[in-house]
Design a protein around this nucleic acid. Structure first.
Lengths: 374, 374
DNA sequence: TTGAAAGCGCTAACAA
DNA sequence: TTGTTAGCGCTTTCAA
C-alpha cells in the first residue's frame, strides 16, 4: 500500500537491542566546572571588570599589555562567557526562535538550512520548535515557552491559517506581546518590527494553469490542499484567474481538497478522472506523486492520457519516469533572506520598520504536461 | 540536466520584490518589559521568594491561599520566568543542543521531528546547529558556541568519520569537556553519560546483498557513499560478508564510492554497467534514484535489465515507476528513543551510565530487484 | 589605567 | 508560614 508519509508512526514501539551499558569514567569524578570570568581574573591577577573589558571588542581604556595577558589566560582556561549571564545583564539573548510545521517538508527543510547557513558564525543560535497541532492551546503554550526562552527574535515559519479569525488575533496579540522582531512567512498582519516573507502562490497557480490552458486543456482539475491555509486559497485563485483569462468557466466540481499529502493525491485521482479532466494542476509535488502512483495503478499514462503540473519543485520532481512539470518556489533564497533580515534586525538598535517581500514563481517545463490530444 | 540536490545554491542572489515597508506602531512606543518575579511580588504583596516557591512545583511551606493569590497575579501579569536567570542560578538550562548534517536528508528530518515530538511539552528546547563542513576548525568553533549556550545535554547526530583520528580525539575531548550528557549516532567512543544510538548498517548491507544473491545475481555492484564515513564502511562490510557466504569472491572493482547524492548515483551507473553487473546495491535511496535516472537515459530497464536495492526507505522510494526494494532504517523510532533518553538523562541527578542501543534493519521487498534472467 | 560595587531575575539558605 | 539575603556570571557605572 501507499506509504503514509504524513503519518509516520512516531511512537511505534520497536525494540532495538540494548547491547551495552557502561559507567563513564569521566562522570564519576568531580565534574570540573567551566571557567568563569573570575577564574580568568584570578589567573592573571586583574579584576573581573578588567577581564570583561579586555575581552570585549568595544574600545576601552584597558592597556594593550593587560589585554594581551587576559586573552592568553582566557585561552588557557578555555574560557567562554556564559550566555545566561550575558543575556541576563544585557536583557537580550543571542537566541532566535523558529517555529515550523514539519521539517520533512522539503520546502521547510531547505528554508531552515538556509537560515542556519546565514546565521552560522554570527554567534546566534536557533531554537527550533515544531508546531504541528492546530489547536489554539498548543499555539499559546508554545508562545509561552518561547517567551521564557528570552529569544531575541522569532521566525514564524508556518503557513497562515484563515479559518479561525479569533485564534489568529490571539496569536497575533501574544506574538506581538513578546516585544521582539518577528519574521513570518505569509502576511499575518503583525504589527511589530520584522518582515513578511511571502511567495506569490496566486501567480504560481496562475502560471501552472495557464500553461495547461495554452496546451489546449479545458477541463483542468485543481488538486488543492487544506482549505484553511491561505496559500491554498491563493493557488486556487490563480487557477481561477487563468481560466477566466481563457474564457473557461470555473467549475467547483473540478476542485478537490486534499491535504498536501501523497495519499490525498492518490485519492483525488479517481475523483478527478470521474470528472473527465484532461489535466490536473496539483498544489504541491507530493500530491502530484500520489497522482503518478494512482495513474500507474489505473493504467493511465502521464502525460499521454493526462497532463500534470505540480508545485514546489522538490528534488525528486526531476527523477520520475516522466519528470514533473512544476512551479519552483525559491525556498533557499527565502531562507537566506530571513537569515540576513534577522542579522539586520538584531544589529540595528532602532529599527521599527516592517518589510514585506514577495518572491515570484517560475514555471519549470518538464515532461508531465503536454498538448492535449484531440 | 539532473538537479543538484546536494548543492542547492544557497547564496544565489535573486531579487524578490519588496512591496511594502511600514512603521510598526507597537514598536514606536516604549517597549513594555516582561513582568518579572518582582512585579508579581509587588502585585500581590508578598516577597519575591514567596512567589518563587509558590510557583514552583516542589513541596514547600507556602499556604494554599498565598499560592493561589500568586498564581492569579502571575497569570494576570502574563509572567514567565526568565530562563537566563534560572539557568544562571541552577547552573543548568532547559536547552538541549543538537548537531546535524543536513535536515534535507529525510532520515535526519524524521529523526529530528521525532526528537522534537518527545520533547514537546516537557519544557526543554532544542537548539539546533547544522554542521556541514568537515574541517576541524568548524567543529571546534561549533563546540565553543555550544559551550557558551549552557545546554544541559547534547545530541551529536552526525555520522562518525573515521579518516582523521586526531581530529576525532580532539572532538571527543572537547565534547566530553562540556561535562554534560551526550547522545551520539554511531559509536564515537565517548566516555560520558549519554547513549550511542546506532543502526546496524552492516546487517543492512548484508540483507540487501544476500537478497540479490538469492535472486541469482553474482556480479553485484556496490554503490557506496563517502569512504570516510564509518557507516559507509559498515555497509560495504555487510556486502562483503554476504558475498562470502555465497562463495562469491569480493571484487574491489565492483565498489564505486559516491557521496550519497543523486548525482553520484547517476555517475556511478555507467561505471558499474561497464563492469557488467546484473544488480546494484546502493548505500542509500537517493543514489538509487540517480541510478533510475541514468538507467532511463541509457534505455536500460529496472528491474528487467538490472536489479537494484536501496537503503533508507525514504518516502519517495515507494512511488517510483518501479517501487524501490530497500532497507528500512527506523529513523522515527531512533529519534523517539533519543528524545526519551534525553528526558531520562536530565531527570535523574546521578546517572553516569552510557548505553549503546542497536537498531536493526528490515528488507522491504518491492519491485526493483528480481530474479536474474539467464 | 584599573578596581569595587551594583544589579540583571531568580533560587535557596537562613532568619524571623 | 513568610521575608531577607547572598550569590549564580557578567557588564557597567563610579571611585580610586
Amino acid at each position: 500500500m501507499l506509504q503514509k508519509y504524513n503519518s509516520l508512526p512516531y511512537n511505534q514501539d520497536t525494540a532495538p537491542c540494548l547491547c551495552r551499558v557502561r559507567q563513564s569514567a569521566s562522570a564519576k569524578g568531580v565534574r570540573k566546572m567551566r571557567a568563569t570570568i573570575k577564574d580568568v581574573a584570578k589567573e592573571c591577577g586583574v579584576s573581573v571588570s578588567a577581564v570583561s573589558m579586555a575581552l570585549s571588542d568595544k574600545p576601552s581604556r584597558i592597556s594593550e599589555d593587560t589585554r594581551q595577558k587576559v586573552r592568553e589566560a582566557a585561552a588557557r582556561l578555555n574560557y567562554h562567557p556564559n550566555r545566561a549571564a550575558l543575556s541576563l545583564v544585557n536583557r537580550k539573548s543571542r537566541m532566535i526562535g523558529i517555529v515550523m510545521n514539519d521539517v520533512r517538508n522539503t520546502h521547510i527543510a531547505a528554508l531552515f538550512m538556509a537560515v542556519n547557513r546565514e546565521l552560522s558564525g554570527t554567534g546566534y543560535s536557533l531554537i527550533s520548535h515544531i508546531l504541528e497541532e492546530r489547536t489554539q492551546d498548543a499555539g499559546l503554550k508554545l508562545i509561552n515557552q518561547i517567551a521564557s526562552e528570552n529569544v531575541a527574535a522569532l521566525v514564524w515559519a508556518r503557513p497562515l491559517e484563515t479559518d479561525k479569525q479569533e485564534e489568529l488575533s490571539n496569536l497575533r496579540k501574544n506574538v506581538e506581546g513578546l516585544g521582539i522582531p518577528v519574521i513570518t512567512m505569509d502576511d499575518y498582519g503583525f504589527d511589530c518590527p520584522g518582515a513578511d516573507v511571502c511567495f506569490d502562490y496566486r501567480q504560481g497557480g496562475f502560471l501552472a494553469t495557464r500553461h495547461l490552458l495554452e496546451l489546449g486543456h479545458r477541463r483542468i482539475g485543481c488538486l488543492a490542499g487544506d482549505q484553511f491555509y491561505y496559500v491554498t486559497q491563493e493557488r486556487i485563485e490563480g487557477y481561477r484567474q487563468a481560466l477566466e483569462e481563457f474564457g473557461v468557466p470555473y467549475d467547483e466540481k473540478l476542485v478537490y481538497y486534499g491535504d498536501y499529502s501523497m495519499d490525498s493525491g492518490y485519492e483525488a485521482f479517481s475523483y478527478l478522472m470521474g470528472q473527465r479532466v484532461s489535466a490536473i494542476f496539483s498544489s504541491n509535488d507530493e500530491m502530484a506523486f500520489g497522482i503518478y502512483r494512482a495513474a500507474r495503478n489505473y493504467r493511465i499514462r502521464i502525460p499521454k492520457d493526462i497532463s500534470l503540473v505540480g508545485f514546489d519543485n522538490v528534488p525528486f520532481a526531476d527523477i520520475m519516469e516522466t519528470p514533473l512539470t512544476t512551479v519552483r518556489v525559491p525556498s533557499v533564497e527565502m531562507g537566506s533572506f530571513i537569515g540576513r533580515a534577522l542579522i539586520e534586525l538584531l544589529g540595528e538598535s532602532e529599527n521599527t520598520e516592517r518589510k514585506k517581500v514577495f518572491y515570484k514563481p517560475d514555471l519549470l517545463r518538464r515532461g508531465s504536461a503536454v498538448e492535449r490530444e484531440l
